[in-house]
Design a binder for these strands. Sequence first.
DNA 1: CTATATATATCGCTCATCGGCATATGGCGT
DNA 2: ACGCCATATGCCGATGAGCGATATATATAG
Lengths: 124, 124
Amino acid sequence: MPMSDIYSRMTERSMQEPTLLLLTALADAPRHGYSLIQEIAKISDGRVKVRTGTLYSALDRLLQQGLIRIERDEVIDGRARRTYALADAGRATLAAEADRLRAVVAEADRRLSTIRPTARGALA
Amino acid sequence: MPMSDIYSRMTERSMQEPTLLLLTALADAPRHGYSLIQEIAKISDGRVKVRTGTLYSALDRLLQQGLIRIERDEVIDGRARRTYALADAGRATLAAEADRLRAVVAEADRRLSTIRPTARGALA
DNA sequence: CTATATATATCGCTCATCGGCATATGGCGT
DNA sequence: ACGCCATATGCCGATGAGCGATATATATAG
């Protein structure tokens, strides 16, 4: 009995930033792969430059999960172009993710602003 | 020449949720490992139950990166206890992470609330 | 002719996280 | 006495999202 049979996926890991930005980029309008890379860079103020390896495997995964769907396939100027759209499930997932993150960020802010009794030179 | 020599860490990946919650849990007071697990569960409303494997390797990594430091080592009721504190660099990193996430969440909200011309049955 | 932009796709590798296990003490129930 | 749970730390193999690189192809600019 191989280990791979014992170890099976139980938890859905929390979404990472590239995926979050990908869903965000699709939230207002359908887009094709290449334009998503640019849109994600724009949203993140140039911080996140998603590689094609990340992008296309993420698109496959999200299609599989039903969070996005293929809107249409075209040929523009001799180049194939596949346009993706956010599915209802993806919209719900993104909204839930935003809520979760909002809560965590609020908690981080709250804790960061607490007066710490161990702070050096404080309580003067 | 093995592949492992070609492939070397270039980018710092964006922080994942367990790590974010770990830093958040340390933001208001120093805590020891086991209590961090409970604090993280509390912060995330029971959603994130960090495994000890995740926790202690994360603590090692964050120590290495200088984001946290060992506050003290004690023996309480015969049990070893190591208490960690958020370092200045960790405090700055957490604040920056919160800012980034706030921006992404705001953008997601903005896009989720846009009226989409392709929406079915809309514009009545 | 050669970059650069547009566009999609695949492959090997890394690392944070996961699940499980090991170890040890103290307290509580039976 | 024995098991179970909470407390507490730590290691190890497996998983999978993301990364870097590469391949392929067309159009446009220099």
